[in-house]
Amino acid sequence: MSIRITHSPATQAHTLRQSFAELYQQTSRLGYDAMIYDFTPVPFSMEGDLITPSLLHMNNVPTDMLSLWSEHGYYQADPVQTYALKTCAPFVWSYQRPEESALRVVLTERHQPVLDYMRDNQMPCGATVPLHLPGGGFGTITGITIGTQQESALAETLAELSFIAHSFQESVFPLFDSEMLTCQHVRLSKRERECLAWSAEGLTAKEIARKLCRSVATVSLHLNTATRKLGASNRVQAVVRAMHYRLLEH
């Protein structure tokens, strides 16, 4: 078992692990050998790239898979994740015959490292349930078979896998802390977010300074730093980008 959580108190993390253990048991009963769960409060960047999940959990996968997906860009090159964002329906996928599976509409050369890795590790096919959540959050639950498997057999499990996935998400979501629900793609300080939030309301730096009992120079510094971190060219664009990443909601 491997799990990547950005932050969570010990008791909370323990409860999450228990929940994942139960989920793995349920997917195993459906015939899946490995299971992956991921959650991100914002699924893609302003440039359209997938954002590495705040929570990424894997059962019965190769030891290097978690680090490859969470730290080395394999998540961004995963065609299953790319396709999952485009649909609300559970689907079966195949790396044995990708041109005959749902993945055919998204596959590019960029995805080749993931295809090679999955084939080399005898994880040729599986099924995924996309979880499009209120407020823009996104997750998936994926069951993977190891060795030779027919995609038609997996298709028969989709309805039950979907029920398990949505029930699990509903039960586990209350365990997510504020850190897990905050997009980690761009990190702004509390004061930077506060200044941007007031800027989003139409206040000038001088008016924000009066609200926060700070100098105009200090407020301007916070706004300029946030603008730079967000890759924006001006404060209006910075507010738009901060809203996309849901950084003004906390």
Rank of each mutant, 00 (worst) to 15 (best):
I5H: 08
A10V: 14
T15V: 14
L16I: 13
R17M: 06
S19R: 05
A21P: 01
E22C: 07
L23G: 04
Y24L: 08
T27K: 02
A34Q: 08
T40M: 11
P43G: 07
M46H: 03
M46A: 06
G48D: 02
G48N: 11
L50N: 03
I51A: 00
T52G: 12
T52W: 02
S54Y: 04
S54G: 15
H57F: 07
V61M: 15
V61S: 13
D64M: 06
G73R: 05
Y75A: 03
D78E: 08
D78K: 06
D78G: 08
T82M: 03
K86Q: 09
C88N: 10
C88R: 12
P90R: 00
S94Q: 01
Q96M: 10
P98K: 08
P98W: 05
E99S: 13
E100L: 13
E100Y: 11
L103F: 15
R104V: 06
V105P: 00
V106G: 02
L107G: 03
R110I: 05
Q112D: 04
P113W: 05
V114K: 05
R119H: 02
D120T: 13
C125S: 03
V129S: 06
P130Y: 04
G136K: 00
G136M: 01
G137T: 10
G143Y: 06
I144E: 01
A153L: 10
T157E: 02
T157A: 07
A159W: 07
S162L: 03
A165C: 10
H166L: 02
S167M: 09
F168N: 04
E170C: 08
E170T: 14
S171Q: 15
V172A: 15
F173T: 12
P174M: 04
P174Y: 09
L175S: 07
L175N: 13
F176C: 04
M180I: 13
M180V: 14
C183D: 09
C183G: 11
C183W: 10
H185G: 05
H185C: 03
L188V: 06
S189W: 08
K190E: 07
R191W: 06
E192T: 06
R193I: 07
W198D: 01
T204W: 02
K206S: 14
I208E: 06
R210E: 12
L212V: 08
L212I: 10
L212N: 03
R214P: 11
S215G: 11
V219C: 02
V219M: 07
V219N: 03
L221C: 13
H222K: 04
A226I: 02
G231F: 00
G231P: 05
R235H: 15
Q237T: 10
A238Q: 06
R241M: 00
M243I: 13
L247C: 00
E249D: 07
H250I: 11
